[in-house]
């Protein structure tokens, strides 16, 4: 049988086996001409185009524009979701006032708003940011509200009997207790953020990754389209890594997040 160390090495390479095989097969098929370069150019060609775009500075420009849109949308929508979630989670009155309305709006898919948004904002920067903000609002709102509501009442009782109240009760007990749930909301929001940005950028834009790919489609540059798609995958992964990092730092007291 294999030694434990060999096993670890095997385990570590195993997840990469399939991607490597697929890319090799793709490269081979494209190289011998089984795949037309209009359908799928060879991987080397894709990397070459990526390199060209990178050298010209075009790639970085589009990435920066898209990232900026994504994070402005996240800041507005997420910030609002967090604030309203804290409000409805903490005050019964606020819940009675807002929750029914918000639950109704929640059932409208953000992408269904695109025609309306175009009428309101044209194909302006604001349109894309608005779509992203609407999309990230609900995951953060729902999870913040739920997090506040599920803080252990025994801990709140204890803190109150120890003379902690008002803002300090909020800061030391309620908010940290809700934080695991809020961060789950943030991870969902980051996922939605890219999806919504892609769709709104492909519909109408003059810069950004979505524009870059749509523009490339016009010129039948499938390689550049692929570069754009890979970029989204990369940025999505990056956002996820950031969210995990935040979890590992803020929830380091929790044995479930402490290591790994």
């Amino acid at each position: 049988m294999s030694t434990p160390q060999k096993k670890t090495l095997f385990d570590r390479t195993l997840p990469w086996l399939l991607p490597v095989l697929l890319i090799s097969a793709w490269q081979f098929a494209a190289h011998v001409g089984w795949l037309s370069s209009r359908v799928l150019p060879e991987p080397l060609k894709v990397f070459e185009s990526a390199w060209e775009l990178l050298k010209s500075g075009e790639l970085l420009h589009h990435v920066l524009v898209s990232t900026r849109r994504a994070f402005i949308g996240l800041a507005i929508g997420g910030g609002l979701g967090l604030t309203l979630g804290l409000l409805t989670g903490t005050f019964r009155r606020a819940e009675t006032l807002l929750d029914t309305t918000l639950q109704m709006i929640r059932n409208v898919p953000p992408l269904a708003l695109i025609p309306l948004v175009i009428l309101w904002f044209g194909i302006d920067e604001a349109a894309k940011i608005f779509i992203v903000a609407v999309g990230v609002f609900f995951p953060l709102y729902m999870n913040t509200y739920h997090g506040i509501r599920s803080v252990d009442p025994a801990l709140i009782e204890m803190a109150k009997s120890y003379g902690v109240s008002g803002w300090r009760l909020y800061r030391d007990v309620i908010f940290p207790g809700a934080l695991p749930s809020i961060l789950v909301g943030l991870r969902f929001a980051l996922g939605f953020m890219w999806v919504l940005l892609i769709v709104s950028e492909t519909i109408s834009a003059t810069e950004g990754i979505g524009y870059m790919t749509m523009n490339a489609r016009e010129f039948l540059r499938t390689d550049v389209v692929l570069v754009g798609i890979l970029l989204y995958a990369l940025l999505g992964k990056l956002a996820d890594i950031i969210a995990r990092g935040l979890e590992r730092f803020w929830l380091r007291w929790n044995p479930n997040y402490a290591n790994a």
Binding site: A159, D172, W253, N254
Partner: peptide, 12 residues
Amino acid sequence: IMFQDSRLLPWK
């Protein structure tokens, strides 16, 4: 008061 469960704040 001291409770049956310690009721320590896990994040502190």
